[in-house]
Amino acid sequence: MIADINSYFGFYPIKKLDVSFQRLVEIKNKHSIDRIFTLSLRGIFYNFQEGNQETLLKVKEDRTFQPVATIDLRMYFGEEDYFRKIEKKFQILRLFPATQGWPIEYSPFYRLLPWIEELNMVLMVEIGRGRGGDITKLSRLTSKFTFPVILTGIGYWNFAETLSCMKDNPRIYVETSQFNTPDAYEVFCKEVGEGRIIFGSGIPLQSFLSVWLPFERSKLSRIEKEKIAGKNISRLLNL
């Protein structure tokens, strides 16, 4: 079974790419992906409420897809019920601080964390390249909560910080769309265990096979690979 935790659809304003939902379906069929977690780019670039609605509508077209929510913390007005805008129909909440230009040490983010706990969601956070220290801050901030935190944007440039934080905080997981080498999987398996690694490709912004093949080439056991490719996320979400 292949589950992909990291995908998008919609319109991509910063490069010409076909990122339509139809394109995502084609990639899914081509590579026989069994389950795809996705969200609309509208929610990242323009308006998260409109984006979340579009995500919920689109995933109804194909049962393979699972909806992922997002919220834009730059829009926090100070209202008490702001975070209630995240609907309970979602199990995963993704945040894009680097793309949207807000720091991890950010008061609206502190306010959001108890809501994630209350909604019993999994949190996925984009770690921007060149933002060293973000993982450390995130690990500290979330250590008093029980929800899992999946880091995206993890590559050789921040492996050290990621591994160190994962050793300290058992609820931190790592997504693999920036793992460019088979040995990255091997190192993370050895140091923090295969149960903390979750496959994600970043399709259709990235090539599926360029992420899948390094994973496949890694010298992990079949059981370890099965966990990374799907069982880990199924376990986290009780699917």
């Binding site: 304003p13 780019l41 323009y46």
Partner: peptide
């Protein structure tokens, strides 16, 4: 259009 500027210009 703000949506046109930050996201989908046609829409």
């Amino acid at each position: 259009s703000l949506k046109g500027l930050v996201y989908d210009f046609r829409e």
